[in-house]
Computed example of a mutant assay.
Amino acid sequence: MGMELRVLMVMAMVVALTSVASAASGTATYYTAPYVPSACYGYQDNGNMIAAASDELWNNGAACGTSYTVTCTGATNQGVQQPCYGTTVKIVDYCPSGCQGTIDLSQEAFSTIADLNAGKVYIDYNLV
């Protein structure tokens, strides 16, 4: 029984490390309501834990409906000190060319990972 438990623990650690290692890095910004219409769902309400995908993720609309875990890793400017957290968001919109972040989060989603005063933060993100 002891050996089985050790094997399970090692497997769990490998899975956890694999998911961390596969995270992509980028930046997140935020936009404010109203969140409709969106490029993916028109006037359908998808709540407020949503995001717009930049060209990097958009893939001609294939990103619509995908979910990402987004974790703040630090501020992009030195003047803002804040703790960083993570959340899960659903892609519902397209962030046009010239978008300032890899993922443009709703204001509510951004405020769960960082202080809104930061405006833009470094992130790691994973497809869920």
Rank of each mutant, 00 (worst) to 15 (best):
T66P: 10
T27L: 08
S22K: 09
Y125V: 05
S111H: 12
Y85C: 07
T18R: 01
S54M: 12
D55A: 15
Q78A: 13
A53F: 09
Q100W: 09
N60F: 07
Y31L: 09
T102M: 11
F110E: 06
A39N: 14
Y125S: 10
S54G: 14
V20K: 01
G61E: 07
G98M: 11
T73K: 02
D45M: 13
P96D: 14
C84E: 00
R6P: 05
T112I: 06
V36F: 10
Q81P: 08
G86P: 06
M49Q: 06
G42R: 06
A75I: 04
D45T: 09
T73V: 02
E4F: 03
S97L: 14
G42P: 07
C72G: 03
V70F: 05
A51G: 10
G61V: 14
G79H: 15
A63G: 11
M13V: 01
V92N: 03
A51M: 12
A12P: 04
D104F: 03
G26S: 06
F110M: 13
Y35I: 15
G74H: 02
Q81A: 15
A23N: 02
G98D: 11
Y125P: 15
Y85R: 06
S106F: 11
T112S: 11
M13F: 03
G26R: 07
V20G: 00
M49P: 13
L5G: 03
S106Y: 09
I113W: 00
D115W: 07
S54A: 14
Q82K: 08
P37G: 09
M13W: 01
T73P: 03
K120D: 07
A62I: 03
A21I: 01
S106N: 13
A52C: 13
M49F: 12
Y31D: 10
C64Y: 02
S67R: 10
V128S: 12
C40E: 00
T88R: 13
Q100C: 12
V70L: 06
V70C: 11
M9F: 01
Q81D: 09
Y43N: 06
A12L: 01
V36S: 13
A24Q: 09
V89Y: 04
S67E: 04
T69G: 05
W58F: 14
S22Y: 07
D55I: 10
N117H: 15
N60P: 10
S106W: 09
